[in-house]
C-alpha cells in the first residue's frame, strides 16, 4: 500500500523544464534515498511533495489524499491538512535563532493548539533525549554545532508527529566529522519504521539504510530499485558514470 504516489510530475521555471514527468511510489516504512548530480531536480522534487514548490502538471497523493491532481491543487484547508502528515528537515537546518532549543521544538505544536502544554513539554523532553540533546534545551541555536542543530531540526519535525519525514540533503552543510551523529539519528528512525525520503550525497547511508534508491538526472528518474542492486549493477550508463564519480571521491 503506497503512502505516496507521484505521477507525471512536471515543473518548469520559465522555459527551463526541471522535472520532466516524474513517477514513483513510496510504501509505508520505506526509506527512499534519492541520489543524482546537482541540478538534477532532486530537491525540487522533494520540496514539491510538501508544497514548498508549485508544480505545473501531474498528481501527488499523500496517504490516499490528492495534494494536487493533474496540476490542480487541493483547497487551502485541505492542503494544510495533507502536508501536515509530513515533516521536513532542511540542508541548512532553518532553526529559529531567536528561540531556545526547547522553544524551537514547542512553538509549532503550541500554535496548533491541539494538545495540552504539558503533553507538548513532555514530548519535547522525550525527543531531546532521543537525539541526545537534553542538556542543551535552554541554549540558543547559535551555541550549537552543525550536527547538533540538525538533530534539533529532526526533533522539531518529529514534534508534529508526522507519518513521513522528508530530508533535503541533511548532512551536506556539515563538517565531515559531524555527519555521523545525524546519520545515526536517521538510522534509529529507520529502525523504528519511520517512512523517510532522503535526498542525499551519502552513498554509504543510501546503501546501508535505504530500502529503495532512486537515481535522478536532468529532471527525470533514470532508474530506481533496491539499493544493493542499483549500486552494484546499475542498468544505465548515466547511473554507472554518476556512481563511479561519487564513489571514487
Amino acid at each position: 500500500m503506497s503512502i505516496i504516489t507521484v505521477s507525471n510530475l512536471k515543473k518548469s521555471y520559465g522555459d527551463l523544464e526541471v522535472l520532466k514527468g516524474i513517477n514513483f511510489n513510496v510504501d509505508k516504512n520505506d526509506v527512499v534515498a534519492i541520489i543524482g548530480p546537482s541540478g538534477s531536480g532532486k530537491s525540487t522534487m522533494l520540496r514539491s511533495l510538501i508544497h514548498l514548490e508549485e508544480i505545473n502538471d501531474g498528481t501527488i497523493s499523500i496517504d490516499g489524499q490528492e495534494l494536487v491532481k493533474n496540476g490542480v491543487y487541493a483547497k487551502a484547508h485541505d492542503l494544510k491538512q495533507i502536508t501536515s502528515k509530513m515533516g521536513m528537515v532542511f540542508q541548512h537546518f532553518n532553526l529559529f535563532p531567536h528561540l531556545t532549543v526547547k522553544e524551537n521544538l514547542e512553538i509549532a505544536p503550541k500554535m496548533a493548539k491541539k494538545e495540552a502544554i504539558k503533553v507538548i513539554q513532555q514530548r519535547s523532553e522525550e525527543l531531546l533525549h532521543k537525539v541526545g540533546l537534553t542538556s542543551w534545551a535552554k541554549s540558543y541555536p547559535a551555541k550549537l554545532s552543525g550536527g547538533q542543530k540538525q538533530r534539533v531540526a529532526i526533533a522539531r519535525a518529529l514534534m508534529m508527529d508526522p507519518e513521513i519525514l522528508l530530508f533535503d540533503e541533511p548532512t551536506s552543510a556539515l563538517d565531515p566529522e559531524l555527519t555521523g551523529e545525524v546519520l545515526q539519528v536517521m538510522k534509529d528512525l529507520a529502525q523504528e519504521k519511520m517512512t523517510m525520503i532522503v535526498v542525499t550525497h551519502e552513498m554509504g547511508f543510501a546503501k546501508e539504510v535505504a530500502t529503495k534508491a532512486i537515481f535522478m538526472d536532468n529532471g527525470e528518474i533514470v532508474e530506481s530499485g533496491e539499493p544493493g542492486a542499483l549500486f552494484t549493477n546499475p542498468q544505465f550508463d548515466r547511473t554507472k558514470a554518476f556512481l563511479q564519480r561519487s564513489l571514487s571521491s
Binding site: 514548498l52 532542511f90 500554535m111 496548533a112
Partner: peptide, 21 residues
C-alpha cells in the same frame, strides 16, 4: 532567510503566526 518562512510553513504555522512569532 527564506528558510525561516519555509520551516514555519512545513511546521503548519499560518502566515500571522509566522509573522508575529
Amino acid at each position: 532567510d527564506k528558510g525561516q518562512y519555509e520551516a514555519s510553513q512545513v511546521l503548519g504555522m499560518n502566515r500571522w503566526q509566522t509573522l508575529t512569532r
